[in-house]
């Protein structure tokens, strides 16, 4: 099976801080991969490197069979722009464009970047909005939406470019608890539909266990445990994974009270 994404012995540091160290990860096309781990473990950095928002220091990263990063070499801007079309990203803080309507947020990039006709792009945008359950909010401005609605629009916006790989960076972490469900519902539909490679950095263990084909636990910039959800979340082997899950579950218990 072909690989959507491959990290090979990747090292990355911010100043003195090592964020990734001898990091290896292969993601086959079509896989739903959940990345879990404590904050500062480097999991968001993995997504940002795959989206070509950050470079690396050592090693090599391949996206859809093409080299994206190799050591500190930075590909020319035109090359980066072409490669970025292979991936789409949804951010923790939505990052919707506040000066555009919900619909324009979705059709704008396909028109500007992919050269699709405005009418076709708008039709597709409306379809995507229906898919995330927000057809009736097409003309609203982002500031008029709830957090959960904003995040669903952000997912539709990223999907509009039809990238083969979708990266979700803690997309429910900034939401009020009652809005987490509607966003997870959209992700579940997307996962069920198949065809797209999905990488999810998440703190929602139960959700990860439910939709992921595979779970990676990261700590200190490395992969500590890697396997099916039943193992990594259900019955972790590594002591560090156990400790992490225990602390997360304690948090969940406290919230349930």
């Amino acid at each position: 099976m072909s690989l959507a994404l491959a990290f090979r012995d990747v090292g990355k540091r911010f100043g003195e801080t090592r964020v990734l160290e001898a990091f290896d990860l292969e993601v086959p096309s079509g896989e739903k991969l959940a990345i879990i781990g404590p904050s500062g473990s480097g999991k968001s950095t993995v997504l940002r490197i795959a989206m070509a928002l950050e470079g690396i220091d050592t090693g090599r990263v391949e996206l859809m069979g093409e080299t994206l990063w190799e050591g500190t070499r930075r590909p020319p801007e035109r090359e980066l722009r072409r490669l970025r079309l292979q991936a789409g990203m949804v951010f923790q803080h939505f990052n919707l464009f506040p000066h555009m309507s919900v619909l324009e947020n979705i059709w704008r990039a396909p028109v500007d970047v992919a050269g699709i006709g405005r009418e076709e792009a708008e039709t597709r945008a409306r379809e995507l909005l229906s898919r995330v359950g927000l057809a009736e909010r097409a003309e609203a401005m982002p500031d008029q939406l709830s957090g959960g609605q904003k995040q669903r629009v952000a997912i539709a916006r990223a999907l509009a470019m039809r990238p083969p790989v979708m990266l979700f960076d803690e997309v429910t972490s900034a939401l009020d608890p009652e809005m987490v469900g509607e966003v997870l519902g959209v992700l579940r539909d997307l996962a069920d539909q198949g065809g797209i490679t999905m990488l999810l950095v998440t703190h929602e263990m139960q959700f990860a266990a439910e939709i992921a084909d595979r779970v990676v636990f990261m700590d200190g910039g490395r992969v500590v445990e890697d396997g099916p959800p039943s193992q990594v979340i259900g019955a972790p082997v590594e002591p560090r994974t156990r400790a992490f899950l225990a602390s997360v579950l304690r948090g969940a218990d406290v919230r349930a009270d």
Partner: peptide, 23 residues
């Protein structure tokens, strides 16, 4: 303008000039 706006535009495939002009 928050960095997240640049990053969202970049991740959608805009170059620097396009992100500046449109977003």
């Amino acid at each position: 303008v928050p960095r997240g706006q640049w990053e969202a535009a970049t991740s959608l495939g805009y170059g620097r000039l396009g992100a500046l002009r449109r977003v």
